[in-house]
């Protein structure tokens, strides 16, 4: 793979800037993963302020470390999919139901509006959207502890 014909840097406002070899500058560049769940390491698009694609990165690993770090740092702040490690309590088995959960980002509670907000992703993974549109992931259903599975089972 050829090295990219652009440079990525960060401006004083904390946003990414893409500078092409010809000197063309794009401020407020946003990296977006094409398959955030299915293939997070592949296919990242750098999108400009007006939503137009400026560059396509086939694989993040192909980039030099500095660029990759800058992009990954931004991606980390854009992608907010807490992974549920444990269901502690649910307010009711009917919906809407308030869930108290432990996630990889700390403890939180959210409101599940309806059972249809729990979506199956493949065999063992679930994606749950709360009333504010935040998505929570259960990466491996059988790996949850018994209490969590029993609670969850009532909604599946």
């Amino acid at each position: 793979m050829n090295p990219p014909d652009y440079q990525i840097s960060r401006n004083a406002f904390g946003h990414l800037v893409l500078t092409r070899a010809g000197g063309e500058r794009h401020e407020n560049v946003v990296p977006i993963r094409a398959f955030p769940i299915a293939a997070p390491g592949e296919g990242v698009s750098l999108v400009g302020q007006d939503g137009e694609e400026l560059a396509w990165i086939e694989r993040l690993d192909d980039l030099d470390k500095r660029t990759r770090d800058a992009i990954e740092e931004d991606l980390a702040l854009r992608e907010f999919v807490p992974v549920i490690a444990r269901l502690k309590r649910v307010s009711t088995f009917a919906t809407p139901s308030t869930w108290l959960v432990d996630t990889d980002r700390g403890e939180t509670s959210f409101v599940l509006r309806g059972e249809e907000d729990i979506r199956h992703l493949g065999q063992n993974a679930l994606l749950i959207s709360d009333s504010h549109g935040i998505q929570y992931l259960i990466a491996d259903l059988p790996a949850l502890d018994k209490h969590s599975r029993r609670l969850l089972d009532r909604f599946l």
């Binding site: 904390g14 992608e79 907010f80 549109g133 935040i134």
Partner: peptide, 8 residues
Amino acid sequence: HAGVGTLE
């Protein structure tokens, strides 16, 4: 974006 607000 995606349920997360940012205030700058």
